[in-house]
Computed example of a mutant assay.
Amino acid sequence: MKLLHKDIEKDNAGQVTLIPEEAEDMWHTYNLVQVGDSLRASTIRKVQTESSTGSVGSSRVRTTLTVSVQAIDFDSQACQLRVKGTNIEENQYKCWFPHLL
């Protein structure tokens, strides 16, 4: 895992920016993230739009989510980290994001 940025204070509050480089890095991240933490990640979501004529279209957009962590799960078979939480920063797209990768 690559550590890009670290800003930790004496009371252990702060932030880090990590980039996973191997599947095993998700396990280490699982052991770092706690309920109540904020997690920011880039994701791709499908957004539906409605034109003035009433036709509906959809497109895939990249957006950044900031989630207040409510639950964390690690799938050891797929080496995937699943985080459930609520979005705490406004987003330009009206979507519901129940979890991240």
Rank of each mutant, 00 (worst) to 15 (best):
M1I: 10
M1K: 08
L3I: 15
L3E: 09
H5Y: 15
K6D: 07
I8L: 12
E9C: 06
E9F: 15
K10C: 08
K10A: 13
K10G: 07
N12P: 07
N12E: 15
V16R: 04
T17R: 15
L18K: 10
E21M: 06
E22V: 14
E22F: 15
D25Y: 06
W27S: 13
H28D: 14
H28L: 11
T29C: 12
Y30W: 11
L32A: 06
Q34V: 08
L39D: 01
L39C: 00
A41S: 09
S42Q: 09
T43V: 14
T43I: 13
I44L: 01
V47F: 01
V47G: 00
Q48R: 11
T49C: 00
T49F: 10
E50M: 09
G54E: 10
G54T: 07
G57M: 06
V61H: 04
V61D: 00
R62T: 01
L65C: 07
V67R: 00
S68E: 12
A71R: 08
A71Q: 13
A71L: 03
A71F: 03
I72H: 01
Q80T: 12
L81H: 02
V83G: 02
K84G: 03
G85A: 04
G85V: 03
T86W: 07
T86Y: 07
E89N: 14
E89V: 10
E90P: 06
K94P: 06
C95P: 05
C95N: 07
F97K: 01
P98N: 10
H99M: 12
H99Y: 15
L101Q: 10
